[in-house]
Design a protein around this nucleic acid. Structure first.
Lengths: 133, 133
DNA sequence: GCTTTTATTTTCAATGATTATAAATAAGCG
DNA sequence: CGCTTATTTATAATCATTGAAAATAAAAGC
């Protein structure tokens, strides 16, 4: 890892990254805190928050700019879409490629300099859909 | 307005709705509070929050499930896309129709029962783009 | 118009997520 | 090993939002 821009690889930073890469879900800062605490019991919540910011800046991870109430974090930094369950709040990756043409389309009519987009689907996950019978 | 589901049309509710419909921006609860306070100085912030929820439920307005840090509210309840300035946080409607086929596409590969989607573009508004020269 | 019912408002305190601060610690360099 | 300073810890502070209790006022009926 390229941590040569004045960044040190501390144990806490390393473990936070490892734990986040380990799961396929998109935990919030508090969940990551709980996960990491199993390995570093005395770590502080502030350290988790700070490192998630740093790791995002270094493109090691990605922060999902929320649609629920709190931020979620994603272990894979590549841009991709998400799908969220309205009932339980569960968040998964959407099985779909990035539609770059969407940006082309909006550029024709806006005076914004468009640099990206974020797409999120809403629905009921298979678990919660059962309850809708 | 159809406020017959056990909802009363209070002065504060009326003014909040009027003020929100009046602007073309997407103010946060605090901004709406400031706007309304010019007409009802003694209104409380909690009342603003509560009414924004109620008005959303009644489909009179729409709450934009944020991508910044705080919720934004939109005077027009119809679904549409937004475009956000990364520098100043300004939020505008995106000049583009809803792409319903996106949902069709994702449905083919997910076991979620998809009921909607939200798309937001990221960019620099014309004002902020000037500073990028 | 006056009563009554109860949704709503106000004031104020509480919560929950996140960020800031200061002192202590430790990564990575020579 | 010793130094520099990024980082951590612990704790307090902030910010947006929500909850609770008492007071107020819509709307419905008389």
């Amino acid at each position: 890892m390229l941590k040569k821009q004045n960044h040190r690889m501390t144990r806490q930073r390393k473990v936070i990254l490892e734990e986040l890469k380990k799961v396929k879900t998109h935990p919030g800062a508090d969940e990551i805190y709980a996960m990491v605490r199993k390995r570093i019991p005395r770590i502080s919540l502030g350290t988790v928050y700070r490192n998630l910011v740093v790791l995002s800046e270094l493109k090691e991870i990605q922060t999902i700019e929320h649609v629920g109430t709190l931020k979620r974090f994603d272990g894979t930094p590549e841009n991709h879409y998400h799908i969220r369950c309205v009932k339980c709040g569960r968040l998964d990756d959407a099985p779909m490629e990035i539609e770059t043409y969407l940006e082309k389309k909006v550029r024709r009519y806006t005076d914004y300099a468009v640099v990206g987009h974020r797409l999120e689907f809403i629905g009921h996950c298979s678990e919660c859909a059962k309850g809708c019978l």
